[in-house]
Simulated scan of single mutants.
Amino acid sequence: MRESTTGVSPRGLMYLVLILLPMLAQAADPLPAWRESPSRSAIVAFVEAVSQQGGPDYVAPAERIAVFDNDGTLWSEQPLYFEVLFAMDEVKRLAPEHPEWRTQQPFKAVLESDHQALAAQGMEGLLKIVAATHSGMSSADFIARSRSWLASARHPRTGKPYTEMVFQPMLELLAYLRDNGFKTYIVSGGEVSFMRAFAEEVYGIPPEQVIGTTFAATFQDQQGTLSIQRLPKIQHNDDGPGKPVSIDWIIGRRPILAFGNSDGDLQMLQWTMAGPGRRFAGLVHHTDAHREWAYDRTSKVGHLDKALDQARAKGWTVVDMAGEWRRVYPFEAP
Rank of each mutant, 00 (worst) to 15 (best):
E208P: 04
V187L: 09
Y203G: 10
T184F: 09
Q222R: 15
T225D: 15
D221P: 10
F194T: 05
G212S: 02
E191C: 07
E208I: 03
Y203I: 08
T218G: 02
G212V: 01
I211P: 01
E200D: 14
F194L: 06
Q222G: 11
A199C: 03
P206T: 05
V202T: 08
S193V: 08
T213R: 02
E201P: 08
S227E: 11
M195Y: 07
V202A: 06
I211W: 01
T218M: 02
K183C: 14
I211E: 02
Y185L: 06
A217Q: 10
I211M: 05
T218I: 05
F198N: 01
P206L: 06
T213Y: 03
E200N: 06
Q223P: 11
A199W: 00
E200C: 00
P206W: 06
S188N: 12
Q222W: 12
S227T: 09
I211T: 03
Q209G: 08
M195G: 01
R196Q: 12
L226T: 08
V187G: 09
A217S: 13
F194Q: 05
P207C: 07
T214P: 04
E201W: 04
V187P: 09
P206E: 01
A217I: 02
E191S: 07
G190N: 13
V210P: 07
S193W: 13
Q222L: 14
F194Y: 13
E200W: 00
K183T: 15
Y185S: 07
P207G: 05
P207T: 01
F182R: 11
I205N: 04
F198I: 03
D221E: 13
V187R: 07
Q220F: 10
G212R: 05
R196L: 00
T214W: 01
F215S: 04
S188K: 09
A216R: 10
F219I: 06
F215N: 07
A217P: 04
F219V: 11
R196W: 00
V192S: 10
F198Q: 02
F198G: 08
Q220H: 13
F219M: 11
G190C: 10
T214F: 03
Y185Q: 12
R196M: 02
G212F: 00
Q223W: 12
A216W: 03
D221R: 08
Q209Y: 06
V187S: 09
M195C: 01
Q222E: 15
S227R: 12
Q223K: 15
P206V: 08
Y203T: 08
F215Y: 10
K183I: 14
F194V: 05
I186N: 12
T218C: 04
G204H: 07
G189A: 10
T218Q: 03
Q222A: 15
Q223A: 15
V192K: 09
S188T: 14
E191D: 12
T214S: 09
F194W: 13
E191H: 11
V210M: 06
I211G: 01
Y185H: 14
S193Q: 15
I205F: 01
Q209L: 09
K183R: 15
V210A: 05
V192Q: 14
K183D: 15
A216Q: 12
E191Y: 12
V202P: 03
T218E: 08
E191T: 09
